[in-house]
C-alpha cells in the first residue's frame, strides 16, 4: 500500500469510526430527508392528481438540502475537539485531506439515497419500474461527486468561521442549483412512463462535467484554505 493510500484509508476510516460511535450525522440526515419529503407533499403534493412529474424535483431538492446538512458536519470533531493541527502537522497533502473528506460525504449521501430514492418512488411515482432504480442510481453517483467535492471545499472554509451554520447553506446552495436542475431533469426523464434517454444522458454528462470543474477548482485552491 502506498503512503498516500494508507493515509487516505486512515482519514476515511477515522470519519466512519467517529460516525459509528457517535451516530450524529447519517441518522439525522435520513430523518431530515424524510421530513423534507413530507413537507413537499403537504406543501403542494396534495394539489395535483399525479405527483410523478414532481418526483424528480422533490427528490433532488430534498437531497440537496440534506447534503448541505451533512456537509456542515464535516470537520466538526476537528473543530470541537481541536484536532485540526494534528492533521495539518502530518505529511499529508492538502488535496488528500479534501479527497478523504469528500469520500466520507459521498458515503453519507449514498446512505441517505439508499433510503430516500425508494421512498420517493413509493410516495410520489405511479407504477415505478425496476429499471428506473438502476438509472437513478447512476444519477445519484454522478451528482454525489460534485456535491461532495464542492461541499468539502466550502465546508472547510465555513466551519472555521463565525455563523457557520448559516453561512454554509448560503454559500453552498446557489452553487448547487445546477446539480438540482440536472439531477432532477435526469430523474424526471426516466421516472414513471417517460423514458427519454438522450435527455437523461445529457444531464448525467453535465453532472460529471460539474464534478470535474469543481474538482479542478478545489485542487487549485484547497491548499490555501489551511495555509494560515
Amino acid at each position: 500500500m502506498t503512503a498516500a493510500s494508507r493515509q487516505f484509508r486512515a482519514l476515511l476510516l477515522k470519519d466512519l469510526r467517529l460516525e459509528l460511535r457517535t451516530r450524529q450525522t447519517a441518522i439525522a440526515m435520513v430523518l431530515f430527508a424524510v421530513v423534507a419529503m413530507m413537507a413537499f407533499q403537504f406543501g403542494f403534493g396534495f394539489r395535483v392528481d399525479d405527483t410523478t412529474p414532481l418526483a424528480g424535483g422533490i427528490l433532488w431538492a430534498t437531497l440537496a438540502l440534506t447534503a448541505v446538512l451533512g456537509v456542515g458536519r464535516s470537520f466538526v470533531p476537528e473543530r470541537e475537539q481541536r484536532v485540526l493541527d494534528g492533521l495539518l502537522l502530518a505529511p499529508v497533502s492538502r488535496n488528500l485531506l479534501l479527497v478523504a473528506r469528500a469520500a466520507s460525504v459521498f458515503v453519507y449521501l449514498v446512505v441517505v439515497e439508499v433510503i430516500t430514492v425508494p421512498l420517493v418512488t413509493v410516495f410520489f411515482v405511479q407504477d415505478p419500474a425496476a429499471t428506473d432504480f438502476a438509472l437513478i442510481a447512476v444519477v445519484c453517483v454522478a451528482a454525489n461527486f460534485g456535491i461532495s467535492i464542492l461541499g468539502s471545499l466550502l465546508a472547510a472554509m465555513a466551519v472555521f468561521s463565525r455563523a457557520r451554520e448559516l453561512l454554509l447553506p448560503v454559500l453552498f446552495l446557489p452553487a448547487l442549483l445546477p446539480v438540482i436542475i440536472a439531477s432532477a431533469g435526469a430523474t424526471h426523464a426516466v421516472l414513471g412512463v417517460s423514458n427519454d434517454m438522450p435527455e437523461y444522458q445529457g444531464y448525467v454528462l453535465f453532472l460529471l462535467v460539474y464534478a470535474v470543474i469543481f474538482a479542478l477548482v478545489a485542487y487549485a485552491t484547497y491548499d490555501h484554505v489551511f495555509d494560515d
Binding site: R6, A10, K14, P91, V92
Partner: peptide, 30 residues
C-alpha cells in the same frame, strides 16, 4: 515528518480509542 509538535491541545479524537488514535497517526506518518 521530522517535526513532533506538542502544544496546548493533545490533538487526539475523544470518541476514538487510544489505540485507534495512535493507529491513525501511524498511518498518516507512515
Amino acid at each position: 515528518p521530522l517535526i513532533g509538535y506538542l502544544g496546548h491541545d493533545p490533538l487526539v479524537y475523544l470518541d476514538l480509542t487510544a489505540a485507534q488514535n495512535l493507529e491513525f497517526y501511524a498511518d498518516l506518518y507512515g
